[in-house]
Design a binder for these strands. Structure first.
Length: 651
RNA sequence: GGGCCCGUCGCCCAGCCAGGAUAGGGCGCCGGCCUUCUAAGCCGGUUGUCGCGGGUUCAAAUCCCGCCGGGCCCGCCA
């Protein structure tokens, strides 16, 4: 067990200040609940001149009756001598500012960095849990687009963070092969005589176009039927509307035809001769769900698409531990079990004539709403379990899948990284689990929600084959990085991809997951906007300095000259790194970490430009500078590792 | 119509949950710095009625109410 003081210098510093304040106020104020509150409000001043940490005083007055600000301030200031970590405190406006004693605090950070090495800053979970993280789970009908890319990067970040902190994590990808979408693809695939992708085209890209073409051709045929009826009725307004919709679809089809001409032509030809292609697709879906062999073509083509997706994930550096096929849930009898159990549930109803679970009664229980994290004000309609034709719905299968995840991994917690638009079905999932008697599972199924990625300009549509793929973005970033590297005279072939994918990850993580990310390809490919490489560059620079200096002469490091200016800022930032990581683990959000690494890099680069490090003539000062550089290097290494960015010794 | 989220410099984004010190970065634009530890860097300059209107408070970008604008959800799709 790592000593807490060692593991987190800033936390220790905060604790000392809080202790000092509590001691100073003990006889004059109500200090019962002050500790937690102080921890909440203790903050870094906006500018370093004010001090290192500050407390807004007026907030304390409520606990100290009959005292004024000045009295309160002097009471605390007078007891500062009690801590060796604090050199002084001064009141300024409504704040009380604390200045660290760089000798004692510096030694604390030094010890931590030296002893922990590249474990520095890695938080330790209080109670290690077994956690399943389900993410990506893109349907096996097209390549990963940038929305799935965001999911992949976020899910991977969460997994890395949880694993590093000591949790047992299993990363799972849910292959959604049951349902209409894969049936459409398989139908088109069959009609085309099971074509293989031409050389040079990845299977996910190729079959993605086949999927879009199949759906679009069927939609056109449906519209043409309606058009025929409208013509018979002489409904001109309707005719006009339908014509414009057909034109729109034809434009999409034309675009697809530019890429896979023969396939599109053949699909139009084949499907026009069919009486009711949509019915055939549905029949195929039902046959697949029933496990009939003639429908195995669905799995066959889904496997091919998945190969392409796996390649993309590998490029991204995202690892998946288990691939769960939705169709296996049927084979294993899990869906049947869920349906059987549902029939016994007290909230089982027939809704519009089909089996459903009704949550009206459950939702009246405020405590339960909170426990199951039902969003405030959200109305939850009954969850329909089975279609009229007997086939199941997505959320029904998800109940079975969730139970499988808990059971197989003996999980304490299941985190589903799923876009915000699925808030309702994810809520229904938890309510359904609860209704079926799986209370522990319901309470520990977490929907990690993130906002969608939108393209600037057009909107994405996989049904029409309109999307920006992860492959395309990373590929073009890779080209851009190669160009830049050539200009700089680099010659390492493996580097550009590592830089490009890190840039992609950084881009996807630098907007808070809960905010819509508007993706602009030209902006993404602007070399000035590539901010991920900045961190990699700074790391390589620090590493290079340390290489030239043959590492840190630890025993010579001393704070006897004091630490001021940028060196002091850097010492502070290095000391704060574990606290940032600990907050990141608590919130499971990347923004604080990214912000901290940026600040650290900015400060380091400025410092690097101002004074020599390895070339510093004074031996003692040189040792101090190298130690600071090592602290920066380690923080960047650990932080970037959690973000899933490649840590490069040279760039 | 109901619910949730978002609106901060020309553009992208942080700060809001736990109200407090002249509202921070990045991009852009203008001007500088490579014989010296990696110039994907650094320095200087430029840019803001924090969507609008009320309210609470000693103090509001931050909390509350209303409005306006944008997104998402409200399916026998996923």
């Amino acid at each position: 067990m790592i000593d807490d003081v060692l593991a987190n210098p800033l936390r220790h510093l905060k604790d000392s200040i809080i202790e000092l304040i509590l001691n100073a106020l003990r006889n004059r104020c109500i200090t019962d609940r002050l500790r937690g509150y102080l921890y909440l409000i203790i903050q870094e001043p906006p500018r370093k001149e004010f001090g290192d940490l500050a407390i807004p005083l007026p907030r304390l007055l409520t606990s100290c009756r009959g005292m004024d600000l000045r009295e309160l301030a002097s009471l605390i200031i007078n007891s500062v001598g009690g801590s060796s970590l604090i050199s002084r405190a001064e009141a300024s406006g409504s704040y009380l500012n604390f200045f660290i004693n760089t000798r004692t605090y510096g030694s604390l950070v030094l010890k931590a960095v030296r002893e922990l090495g590249d474990r520095y800053g890695v938080p330790k979970a209080d109670r290690p849990k077994r956690i399943v993280v389900e993410f990506v789970s893109a349907n096996p009908i097209h390549p990963l687009h940038i929305g799935s890319g965001r999911n992949a990067v976020i899910g991977d970040f969460i997994s890395r963070l949880l694993i590093a902190s000591g949790h047992e994590v299993e990363r799972r990808y849910y292959v959604d092969d049951v349902g209409l979408q894969t049936a459409y693809l398989a139908y088109g695939y069959l009609k085309l005589g099971k074509p293989e992708p031409p050389s040079g085209i990845k299977p996910d890209h190729y079959y993605g176009m086949i999927y879009a073409a199949t759906v679009t051709v069927i939609d056109v045929l449906k519209l043409r039927n309606e058009l025929q009826k409208a013509k018979e009725l002489g409904d001109y307004a309707r005719i006009k509307e339908l014509n414009s919709r057909v034109d729109e679809l034809m434009a999409h089809l034309q675009r697809l035809r530019d890429k896979v001409r023969k396939e599109v032509d053949k699909l139009i030809d084949e499907l026009s001769g069919e009486e009711d292609p949509e019915a055939s697709v549905k029949a195929l879906m039902k046959a697949y769900e029933a496990g009939r062999p003639e429908a195995s073509v669905i799995r066959e083509v889904a496997e091919k698409v998945l190969e392409g997706i796996k390649e993309t994930l590998q490029t991204l550096g995202v690892n998946i531990d288990r691939w769960d096929w939705e169709s296996d849930l049927f084979r294993e009898g899990l869906v049947r079990d869920v349906l059987g159990r549902a029939k016994e549930a007290s909230n089982y109803v027939l809704h519009k004539g089909v089996p459903a679970l009704d949550f009206k009664y459950l939702l009246q229980d405020k405590g339960l709403r909170e426990k199951l994290r039902v969003p405030k004000g959200l109305e939850v309609p009954p969850l329909i379990l089975v279609r009229e034709d007997g086939s199941t719905l997505y959320t029904t299968r998800d109940i079975a899948y969730t139970l499988k995840k808990f059971k197989e991994f003996r999980a304490d917690e299941v985190i589903n990284v799923i876009a915000v638009e699925q808030t309702l079905p994810q809520t229904q999932l938890r309510l359904a689990l609860h209704s079926l008697g799986f209370r522990r599972e319901a309470e520990n199924t977490i929907h990690y929600s993130y906002e969608m990625v939108r393209m600037s300009g057009a909107s994405m549509s996989s049904r029409r084959g309109v999307y920006v793929t992860v492959d395309e973005v990373i590929g073009r970033m890779n080209e851009l990085v190669k160009e830049i590297m050539q200009l700089r005279g680099g010659n390492d072939d493996t580097l550009p991809l590592k830089v490009a994918r890190s840039a992609f990850r950084y881009m996807m993580l630098s907007t808070t997951p809960s905010k819509v990310l508007v993706f602009d390809i030209s902006r993404a490919l602007d070399r000035k906007q590539l901010s991920g490489p900045y961190l990699q560059y700074t790391y390589a620079r620090a590493a290079s300095v340390l290489r030239k200096a043959n590492g840190v002469p630890w025993d010579k490091v001393s704070f006897e000259y004091g630490v001021e200016g940028l060196r002091r800022d850097l010492l502070w930032l290095v000391g704060a790194f574990p606290e940032v990581m600990s907050k990141t683990l608590e919130k499971l959000e990347p923004d604080d970490l990214i912000g901290h690494l940026n600040r650290l890099s900015d400060t380091f680069n400025r410092w690097y430009d101002q004074e020599p490090i390895a070339k510093e003539p004074n031996e003692v000062l040189r040792a101090l500078k190298l130690f600071i550089t090592e602290g920066v290097r380690l923080s960047l290494k650990v932080g970037m590792g959690i973000l899933g960015m490649d840590v490069l010794e040279r760039i």
